[in-house]
Design a protein around this nucleic acid. Structure first.
Length: 851
RNA sequence: GCGAAAGUGGCGGAAUUGGCAGACGCACCAGACUUAGGAUCUGGCGGGGUAACCCAUGAGGGUUCGAGUCCCUCCUUUCGCACCA
């Protein structure tokens, strides 16, 4: 009885013991240098924001990466598996305001707490390469890159309309605005403000970022589609319509008629220049610069335009631009179609966006659904200029409203009978020759606004001088250190602007007093290149060593949530290309394979504090241990699907680990006593168990490497353990010889090692194993042993299952057929009927077709 | 509206190329052991039927000797895009 008690699986004893031993061995999870001869494998999970608490989504993310890293070590790879902290950002500032704690202190304390959690979970990270983005030894390189990009014209400063989150009290990049709301505050509507801001010229790489997606076949199609949509390439033509001379509605301040000079132009962007003969109006965005001129002193028109703008803004804020009811007002002015000299009215409309294309369109109601809706509403003429290439049998179908498909030009003067494609080329060419337009490519993606009016971020290394304008901080003055003892409030712009020691500098050019830039960089700058720094985290001379990068990059496997599909993941791809063009690296893409894991759900909803359905990892570890918590996170669902957290399931996994513990502990002495190979080929129970073992190894190896179905891997280990448990008496009695026991138990432990490293380490030691189990070679399945000598073949009659017959493995069709026909149940089923056809699929099935 | 993914017991999920639907786990039921415990072990567990059998993978069609798997139509859920000219 006392002995039975000792066999109780107690993770609260085992896990801290190994955690201590591993902590004393800093080389345990370290990558080997480049020349080790092993193939390299860089596995990376997205680094966490140091909020102070890991949540279950983290546990899942890192359990996946850690299982992969351990298995790759076992398969003989030189694995780089680092971790760091995305440590700049607003929560630290908000906490500072709330608790009067300096952001740095708050952040570093959180990092320490989360590092403890990581270590308690037994995550195999190489902490020697840890990266903390809020420390000067990291962010100085953000500044260094900023300066290099400035030198190349990839950084510029511009006053423009920018997104402002009133909750964050700072500007946001377009990528950080989702359906008109802040990415961090989904209830907060983002405002537009006119501000002077720093931008990264990501649009210079728009085409390359788009083209690169085609080659990223290791990325989920979903993410690639999202990035394609975001980049939003559109091929078309820009055409100038000439303003017709007109005094209508235009008055000067003294109420005298105001004449807009003929010859001024309105440039429109269209993807369907072939329909230009069907243009019956020009539509301007309410914010189009020409609108003010056209309105002149016409107060009524100005009010109406203001209203249109307001409608557009409201629709944007509602995140529902598609549903806006189209409104417009005629300006009373006219434009001349450069191709046919036709005079068409100029309108202002609420559905035209100022920030796409040229902010002006030619409206072709005959061949565009939106234009048709608008023209119908305001009785603007609708004209057909494209006819179907093959006229429909039913004439009705060729009637308006409109044909948006390609066809043949009609009512288009000299261009009649051209195909749409040919007409587009021809018209663009003519426009170019005559100087009133050209073929262009438009992108939806905008330059990346990186200025943030907040404190806890990388200072932008620029100085404003009255004489010399904007002057970069010289390299030898880097890093520009973020001052620490400062007062933080959310009001009144950048907190740094109130720190006179920081602001007041001398101009590096003229030596006169100057003002330092007080905005900080977007935190997405930090995460755009952090994974390069891991390879050389202590380098104080450069951001990294280029030769080392060449060895480790691109990242073989990146794992994280899909929520970064267009934020972090597009910025990183941009940054990689910038570094390549700076001559620092040679790879075009940072990541070969991307995996986006599903969310962790509880009671049908994503875990969230608001909903009160959060499960704390610490709690789970305290109750069931880290191994059970991690293993459950991998067992409950395939990693790409959402995971429904059920605590009873964790208890079930914990019971399973207990069974593993007991069966191995009970027979460990027998296994240790084994010397050499078994004297005879296995038979009876030994054969059955060894066969199951080698089948299990084959299955797990396949599911792990090919499909990442960790749930079926773990289920297979459970099956093996169930068989071992059922054969407990035979193991005990010596019916299964010691070498077989050793083979069974050591391999079981090795198979378990990627999922439950603590238990594996404990049992490995008990079995007399050297080093750590996750540094031992991954088990190899012996196909001879795995092979069954008899298999079951289902027999169907007319497609219905009747019985199962046993035949020797590899039996020929005739043998299988004979066995099927000899079966009593089958016989009785086909009695009195004629066999019309027999289908035998060797190794699979027999189907008898009878009448 | 367009595009993608998904829909299997009471629950999470298996089913590798079209070949025994429900592996594995949870929950539940029965039993064993017992110094009573959130322990361990054994058996049962899709529905109907005493049984032989019959029915069953969102619904309906189809292809096939054979369909959860392939094709068509529809329904539901999730995600992405959506006046982008």
């Amino acid at each position: 009885m006392a002995e039975e008690k000792e066999l109780r699986y107690d993770p609260s004893v085992i896990e801290p013991k190994w955690q201590q031993r591993w902590a004393a061995d800093p080389k345990l999870y370290a990558a080997e240098p480049a020349g080790s001869g092993k193939p390299k494998y860089y596995v990376l999970e997205m680094l966490p924001y140091p909020s102070g608490q890991l949540h279950m989504g983290h546990v899942r993310n890192y359990a996946i990466g850690d299982a992969l890293a351990r298995q790759m070590w076992m398969r003989g790879y030189n694995v780089l598996h680092p971790m760091g902290w995305d440590a700049f950002g607003l929560p630290a500032e908000n906490a500072a305001i709330k608790n009067n704690t300096p952001p740095r202190e708050w952040t570093l304390a959180n990092i320490a707490a989360m590092k403890r959690q990581f270590n308690r979970l037994g995550m195999g990270f190489d902490w020697a390469t840890e990266v903390t983005t809020c420390l000067p030894d990291y962010y100085r390189w953000n500044q260094w890159f900023f300066l290099r990009m400035y030198e190349r014209g990839l950084v510029y400063r511009k006053k423009s309309k920018v997104n402002w989150c009133p909750e964050c009290c700072t500007v946001l990049a377009n990528e950080q605005v989702i359906d008109g709301r802040c990415w961090r505050h989904e209830d907060t509507i983002v405002e537009q403000r006119d501000l002077e801001q720093w931008f990264f010229r990501i649009t210079s790489y728009a085409q390359e970022l788009l083209d690169g997606l085609d080659k990223l076949d290791g990325w989920p199609e979903k993410v690639r589609t999202m990035q394609r949509n975001w980049i939003g390439r559109s091929e078309g033509t820009e055409v100038d319509f000439f303003l017709a001379e007109s005094a209508v509605n235009a008055q000067n301040d003294d109420c005298s008629p105001r004449t807009i000079p003929a010859g001024r132009r309105i440039r429109v962007f269209t993807t369907r220049v072939d329909t230009i003969f069907g243009a019956t109006s020009i539509q301007l965005a309410p914010e189009h610069p020409l609108v003010i001129d056209l309105a002149g002193k016409d107060a009524g028109l100005r009010t109406q335009v203001a209203q249109l703008l307001d409608e557009q803004k409201k629709a944007r804020e509602a995140g529902d631009v598609g549903a806006i009811e189209k409104h417009g007002v005629p300006t009373g002015h006219f434009a001349i179609n450069p191709f046919n000299g036709e005079r068409i009215p100029i309108w202002v409309a609420n559905y035209i966006l100022a920030d796409y294309g040229t902010g002006a369109i030619m409206s072709v109601p005959g061949h565009d659904a939106r234009d048709f809706e608008f023209a119908t509403k305001y009785a603007i003429p609708i004209r057909r200029v494209i006819a179907p290439a093959t006229p429909p049998a039913n004439a009705e179908e060729s009637e308006l409203p409109f044909l948006t498909e390609d066809g043949i030009l009609v009512n288009s003067g000299e261009f009649d009978s051209l195909t749409c494609e040919a007409a587009q080329k021809r018209l663009a060419q003519i426009a170019k020759e005559k100087g009133f337009g050209e073929a262009t490519v438009t992108f939806r993606i905008k330059d990346w606004g990186v200025s943030r009016q907040r404190y806890w971020g990388t200072p932008i290394p620029m100085i404003h001088c009255k004489t010399d304008g904007v002057v970069p901080v010289p390299d030898d003055q880097l890093p520009v250190i973020l001052p620490e003892q400062i007062e933080i409030t959310q009001q009144g712009g950048s907190p740094l602007a109130r720190v006179s020691e920081f602001v007041n500098v001398t101009c590096p050019k003229c030596g006169q007093p100057a003002r330092r830039e007080t905005d900080t960089m977007d935190t997405f700058v930090d995460s755009s290149w952090y994974f390069y720094r891991y390879t050389d985290a202590k380098n104080s001379k450069a951001p990294f060593d280029s030769a080392t990068i060449k060895h480790w990059f691109p990242i073989d496997q990146y794992i994280g949530g899909v929520e970064h599909a267009i934020l972090h993941l597009i910025y990183s791809r941009f940054w990689t290309r910038v570094m390549r063009d700076l001559g620092l690296i040679t790879n075009d893409e940072p990541v070969t394979r991307l995996f986006t894991q599903g969310m962790v759900i509880k009671d049908g909803f994503k875990m969230s504090k608001n909903r009160g359905n959060v499960v704390s990892p610490d709690d789970m570890i305290a109750r069931y241990g880290a191994d059970a918590t991690r293993t459950y996170a991998l067992f409950a669902a395939p990693p790409d699907r959402d995971l429904d957290w059920q605590e009873d399931g964790v208890a079930g996994v914990s019971r399973f680990l207990g069974r593993v513990y007991r069966i191995v502990m009970k027979h460990a002495a027998t296994a240790r006593s084994a010397s050499g190979a078994p004297s005879q080929p296995p038979a009876g129970t030994s054969l059955r168990l060894l066969r199951k073992l080698h089948q299990t190894i084959a299955k797990i190896t396949h599911d792990f490497e090919g499909r990442w179905h960790f749930n079926t891997c773990i289920a297979a280990i459970m099956e093996l353990v169930n068989e071992l448990t059922a054969a407990d008496a035979q193991l005990e009695s010596g019916e299964v010889p010691a070498p077989a026991v050793r083979e069974l138990l050591t391999n079981l432990v090795l198979l378990l090692a990627p999922f439950a490293p603590y238990l594996a380490a404990e049992l490995w030691e008990e079995l007399g194993g050297q080093a750590a189990p996750f540094r031992a070679p991954w088990p190899k399945s012996d196909p001879g042993l795995a092979k069954e000598d008899e298999i079951e073949i289902p027999v169907q009659v007319n497609g219905k299952l009747v019985n199962v017959v046993r035949v020797p493995a590899g039996s020929a069709s005739e043998v299988i057929q004979a066995a099927a026909l000899a079966d009593e149940k089958v016989k009785s089923r086909i009695a009195g009927k004629t066999i019309a056809k027999v289908i035998v699929v060797p190794g699979k099935t027999v189907n008898l077709v009878v009448r």
